[in-house]
Amino acid sequence: MSLHDDAVLVLKEYGSQEELRQLYLEHLDAHPDGMYKPCGAGHLTSSALVIDPSRARVLLTLHRKLGMWLQMGGHCEPGDATVEAAALREATEESGIAGLSLLPGGPVRLDRHPIPAPCHWHLDVQYAAIAPADAVAAISEESLDLRWFAYEEVAGVADTSVVRLLESTLARL
Rank of each mutant, 00 (worst) to 15 (best):
M1T: 12
M1K: 11
M1N: 11
S2H: 10
H4D: 09
H4L: 15
H4K: 13
D5M: 11
D5W: 03
D6W: 11
A7L: 10
V8T: 13
L9I: 10
Y14W: 11
Q17G: 12
E18L: 14
E19A: 15
L20A: 14
R21V: 12
R21N: 10
L23V: 12
Y24N: 04
L25S: 05
E26F: 02
L28F: 03
L28V: 05
H31M: 07
P32N: 12
P32H: 08
D33A: 12
K37H: 11
K37C: 08
K37V: 13
C39L: 09
C39V: 06
G42K: 13
H43A: 02
H43R: 10
L44S: 03
S47R: 01
A48Y: 07
D52H: 05
D52M: 06
R55N: 06
A56V: 08
R57E: 14
R57Y: 10
V58S: 05
L60G: 02
L62N: 07
R64D: 08
K65Y: 03
K65G: 03
L66D: 06
G67A: 10
G67W: 05
M68F: 11
M68K: 15
M68L: 15
Q71C: 14
Q71K: 04
Q71A: 15
G74K: 01
G74I: 02
H75I: 09
H75R: 15
H75T: 13
H75A: 15
C76M: 14
E77Q: 15
E77V: 14
A81S: 14
E84C: 01
A85C: 03
A87P: 04
L88R: 00
A91C: 04
E93G: 00
E94D: 10
E94G: 01
S95W: 01
I97A: 03
A98V: 06
A98H: 09
L102Y: 05
L102K: 02
L103R: 00
L103K: 00
P104L: 02
G106H: 04
R109G: 08
L110T: 00
L110E: 01
D111A: 14
R112Y: 08
R112L: 14
H113T: 11
H113R: 12
I115Q: 09
P116Q: 11
P118D: 09
P118M: 11
W121Y: 15
H122W: 08
H122E: 13
H122F: 09
V125H: 01
Q126F: 00
Q126L: 15
Y127F: 15
Y127H: 08
A129W: 05
I130E: 11
A133S: 12
A133V: 10
A133N: 10
A133Y: 06
D134S: 13
A135G: 09
A137G: 05
I139Q: 13
S140L: 06
L144W: 02
L146H: 01
L146C: 04
L146A: 01
W148G: 02
W148Y: 07
W148D: 05
F149T: 04
E152S: 13
E152F: 09
E153N: 06
A155V: 08
V157D: 00
V157W: 02
V157E: 05
V157N: 02
A158W: 01
A158F: 02
S161W: 07
S161I: 05
S161K: 08
R164C: 13
R164D: 15
L165R: 00
L165H: 05
L165V: 07
L166A: 02
L166D: 01
L166W: 04
E167C: 04
E167D: 13
T169H: 02
L170K: 11
L170F: 06
R172L: 12
R172V: 07
